[in-house]
């Protein structure tokens, strides 16, 4: 069975993100990288090769830049990549993106599992996984911290999910859509060979026409984006003759601030 991994490129997490006078978002010369959460999805898909998965495909929806994220996945060991790119998808919200991904999954054969990251670090809301799954009518398992058991021939999957109050173990049937959290694995570094192979890969591009997506439009609109006001005031460093004195002063300040 094939595993499809979905990924997007996002500005490097250390980037200084800002808003230009024309209202566009900038990140200086920081690189666009694979969305950090998606690396865990890629790694888990590769690990599932030992548990019976037979093929891996990584899919990205976005512009040419997205190829960098796709190449990172290829360099890690994913077999093939597909870029879905179309002018009508520029302002896509998750409702649009999830529809595009679901259509792409339908077009690929023998897909048993779709794997996504928990959230994207740019405009992400974390809804794409559930929406892709709901559109396909498949089992939806989000926030997965461990695949406890998976049997591709029997078509069963059991996972551990990380919720606010603790860990839920839940069982479902394949095909399934899974989103992963950081705890699930330790992503590998791409090998030198992998990087070489990825850099030479020809990535096919599918347009909206290939996916029969007419009449698709986002349902939410970003009307404004602003950088955060710088934090006002300096840090007040508390010093005393002794540690106890400084700690006592800090405690007094916090009681005064009414935060304890």
């Amino acid at each position: 069975m094939r595993i499809v991994i979905c990924t997007k490129e996002t500005p490097d997490t250390a980037a200084k993100v800002d808003v230009a006078p024309d209202g566009s978002v900038t990140w200086g010369d920081a690189p666009l990288v694979i969305n950090p959460w998606d690396e865990y999805a890629v790694e888990e898909a590769l690990l599932l090769g030992d548990r019976g998965a037979t093929a891996t495909t990584v899919v990205g929806v976005g512009g040419e830049d997205t190829k960098e994220a796709l190449k990172h996945a290829l360099a890690m060991g994913v077999e093939e990549a597909i870029l879905i790119s179309d002018p009508t998808l520029v302002d896509a919200d998750t409702l649009v993106t999830s529809r595009v991904i679901a259509q792409a999954v339908r077009k690929l054969d023998n897909v048993g599992l779709v794997m996504l990251g928990k959230i994207t670090t740019d405009g992400g809301s974390g809804q794409t996984p559930a929406q892709v799954g709901w559109r396909l009518g498949w089992t939806i398992l989000t926030y997965v911290s461990k695949i406890v058991d998976i049997d591709f021939s029997a078509g069963t999957i059991t996972v551990e999910r990380l919720l606010e109050e603790g860990k839920q173990v839940i069982q479902g049937k394949l095909p399934a859509v899974v989103s992963v959290v950081k705890d699930i694995n330790e992503p590998r570094y791409p090998s030198f060979m992998g990087i070489r192979k990825a850099s030479r890969a020809e990535i096919p591009v599918w347009g909206a026409g290939d996916l029969e997506l007419d009449g698709i439009s986002p349902k939410v609109k970003w009307v404004e984006i602003e950088s955060l006001p710088p934090r006002e005031g300096e840090c007040q460093i508390l010093e005393g003759e002794t540690v106890e004195e400084a700690a006592g002063m800090l405690a007094d300040k916090l009681i005064e601030e009414k935060v304890v």
Partner: peptide, 23 residues
Amino acid sequence: STTRGIDVMGALAVDLEAGTIAD
């Protein structure tokens, strides 16, 4: 905007073709 809220709202949005704003 919790693990449950995001998923439930996502599914609902698909059924109703409704826009959602998270977080």
